[in-house]
Each structure stands twice: as C-alpha cells, then as structure tokens.
C-alpha cells in the first residue's frame, strides 16, 4: 500500500524536523486533554466513590445515566457546550466559545462519566473487602471515600488513562466548540480531520501516527509508575 509508506514518511518528517506548527499543535492537544482529564478526575473520582458507597434516593437512575453517558457522542457534548457558551447562550457574556477553555469544558464533560463509572466499579469491589474493617475502625461510608480512593490508586490510574484516551482521541466536541482555528484551537485531531478533508491523506495519517506515539508514551509512563508503586505498596 503506497499510501501507508507516504504516511510513515510524513510522520517521520514531522518528527525529525520538529516542525514548530506541529509542536504547537501537540502542546495544545496535551494541555487541553490533560487539563480536562484533571478536572474530570477531581469530579469523577469522588463522584464514583460516593455512588459506590452512599445509598440515596435516585442512586440507581444516576448510575444508569452515568454508565450510558460513557457512550455520549463527542459531537453531542460539543453541541451542548456550544449552545451553553455561544454569545446567545447562558454563558455567552464570558466569550469562551472558540477558545481552548471551551475545549477543556467539553472534554471534561466527556471524560467525567468514564472516570466516575470505572471508579464506582473499582471502589465497589474494594469496599466489599474493606467494609467490615473500616466500619470496625469507625470510618463511616463518607469517611471511607478518600481511604478507598487512595487504596484503589493503581486501578484508578487505568480509569484516568481511559479518560485521557477518550479526550486525546475525540474530535467531534473540540471541533464544534474550538472551531479548529489555526494557531489558537487547532489540535492533533482537528488537524487530522482538516488534512483529511483537504485530501492530504499521507499528512493526516502522519499526524495520526504522531498522536498514537504520544498516547503510547503517556500510557507507558503511567504504567511504569503504576508498576513501581504496586511493587512498593504490595
């Protein structure tokens, strides 16, 4: 396949020349997605743990909704945030549409359900093991939340990586709320979409390969850290 050769060559050229536009795009992609995942973790980890531990009216439906939202099409999340941030929308006066902040908001919404749902599962399993001991020590279910989150940390890294994967890979949401503005809101995925629509398939695939390498590197680093921590913590 001659297309793949060209793509690999394009990817190689992009990497070795250290193309400044590419560096900017990569940096923005990482900034937006890492920030979104950070925000989503701040919300999603405790949310998942509370859903695992605390019984309250409406808990069942909330769990079903969050599990379902894992499959939310990014473009729908994008449209929702677009209508929210648009000048004609409720948050219009802040002028956030077509900025990286808008992209962070959209991706945060996409990632929260993933982190919350996976956290709920992990914490439910851990609580089954810890329940009697923590109750005996006098920890109520709410007090158990931080304890369980900390003790489940190596599993939760996987949940966070799943969220990061979703954020780094999606294009639908950030295209709508970011506008793919050159030098302002252009990320890896929107650039790939643009090059595809320009018919420059080798460059698009080359960018895709660069994206893949970055995501691989992040995952490898996280797993190495996780393995070290596991070995140390038993």
């Amino acid at each position: 396949m001659q297309g793949l050769d060209e793509a690999l060559a394009a990817a190689w050229r992009l990497i070795v020349t250290g193309d400044t536009a590419l560096v900017e795009i990569v940096a923005l992609s990482l900034k937006v997605s890492l920030t979104a995942v950070f925000c989503a973790a701040v919300v999603g980890l405790p949310l998942g743990a509370v859903l695992a531990l605390v019984r309250f009216p409406g808990r069942g439906p909330v769990i079903v909704v969050i599990d379902a939202l894992m499959g939310l099409p990014p473009v729908v999340a994008g449209l929702f945030v677009y209508l929210l941030l648009s000048r004609a929308g409720p948050l219009g006066p802040y002028g956030l549409l077509f900025t990286p902040t808008a992209m962070v908001i959209a991706q945060t919404l996409l990632v929260i359900p993933i982190i919350a749902a996976l956290t709920r599962q992990v914490v439910t399993d851990l609580w089954a093991e810890y329940c009697e001991q923590l109750t005996s020590l006098g920890a109520g279910r709410l007090r158990a939340v931080p304890t369980l989150l900390w003790d489940a940390r190596s599993s939760l890294v996987t949940a966070i990586l799943a969220g990061l994967g979703r954020a780094m890979a999606e294009v639908g949401a950030i295209l709508v709320v970011g506008g793919n503005i050159d030098g302002v809101t252009r990320t890896m995925t929107t650039a790939i979409a643009l090059e595809t629509s320009k018919g420059d398939l080798p460059l698009a695939l080359g960018l895709g390969i660069v994206l893949l390498v970055i995501v691989l590197a992040i995952n490898a680093a996280a797993h190495m850290l996780g393995a070290t921590a596991r070995r140390a913590a038993g």
Binding site: K31, L34, P100, T101, M103
Partner: peptide, 14 residues
C-alpha cells in the same frame, strides 16, 4: 504541574 500548565495556557490564550 500538568494542571497548572493546562490552566495557565488557555487563560493565556484568551
């Protein structure tokens, strides 16, 4: 670090 970097950047762009 990632969080600070991430937060600072979009704000800077605005």
């Amino acid at each position: 670090g990632a969080a600070i970097w991430g937060f600072a950047a979009p704000a800077g762009a605005q």
